[in-house]
Design a binder for these strands. Sequence first.
DNA 1: ACCGAGCTGTACCAATCGGTCTAGTGACGA
DNA 2: TCGTCACTAGACCGATTGGTACAGCTCGGT
Lengths: 187, 187
Amino acid sequence: MSRGARERLLSSAVTLFRRSGIAGCGVAEILAHSGAGRGSIYTHFPGGKAELAEEAVRTSGQDLTDLITTVVDQQGLADGLHALIEYWRDMLRSTGYAESCPILSAALQNDATAAQRAAGDVFRDWHEALTGILRAEPATSDRADTLATLIIAAVEGAIALARGQHSLAPLDAVEAELAHLLGLAGE
Amino acid sequence: MSRGARERLLSSAVTLFRRSGIAGCGVAEILAHSGAGRGSIYTHFPGGKAELAEEAVRTSGQDLTDLITTVVDQQGLADGLHALIEYWRDMLRSTGYAESCPILSAALQNDATAAQRAAGDVFRDWHEALTGILRAEPATSDRADTLATLIIAAVEGAIALARGQHSLAPLDAVEAELAHLLGLAGE
DNA sequence: ACCGAGCTGTACCAATCGGTCTAGTGACGA
DNA sequence: TCGTCACTAGACCGATTGGTACAGCTCGGT
């Protein structure tokens, strides 16, 4: 088929995990979505669904870490935050609130231990990246650590609220409050 | 058995949804945990697992709404927020980060449409309660709506972070930042 | 005491779960 | 050109999924 079955499996797994979480979608579903045969999973991911899930969380998490750093580097903190929230707004809107952050779903799945640990690692990466950025700005340098956590938690929480309420209002509100907070972060 | 099978089923469902989400646990598991017979589910919840899940989300959500209002009414905004976050800290700590907020899990499950909608309604209840409280205080009255959303999103997000990282640090950080924010909310 | 209605426990169902196995396919090196 | 070998597709597996059917029990009303 077109490109490596491994990549297609990972890509399909990420999409379906966005939608239904790890426990919520079956191997057969991932297979059908990716067009791969059943054998392909177990040659590329000998650990089966668990290994595929962990790898899907790690790769999609890395993509998001890259997105965070590049967007903030290019556009600065305020505009970067807007762009990141817009990213989630777009995804929720275009999928009818069906897909959102796969890391968020994985973090709550305490079957799938490996995937959950991977989600924790991804959160740590985000926190590290954001802390570095916030520490570089004088206005936020002293509370960089806790501010970074607040931003991540608020955005991920807003995604959950938006998903449940089928509304973008939580993302709008969180963006406004975070912008307000960062604007006067030095007190 | 001791008390009504309906209540035991709901209570067990909430516990297991805290742990594995709706998709992550089977009817057999709920049955075993509650000690009820298989038939009991379908007499009390003719809609099957979906109806049980929706009802579990609604009742546990109502309990949490009550907790929010009473705690904040009795202890005020700052101490009330501390008590609420301590509630989640206790749950995560005492269960080894295995159990957390069932509403959060339900909001991300877009199979189980009814349960997801119920989660959205619960979030709306929380938002309404918090907005009322914040509007009553002069310091937060003008931004009450967005502040309420930020608080809910940040706390729920912090729960997800804590779950993934097996650490209470996200809850500590969010509590500190929210306390700081509410302390100078008037600017 | 008796009867009837409602609840409960269990056997059973098809469908699906994740995983294994293998024959066949394709590309690549000798 | 042939042989090799990693990969693939799909048949197949036992276990488990959510749901149904039903027989027996318990309890309340008369």
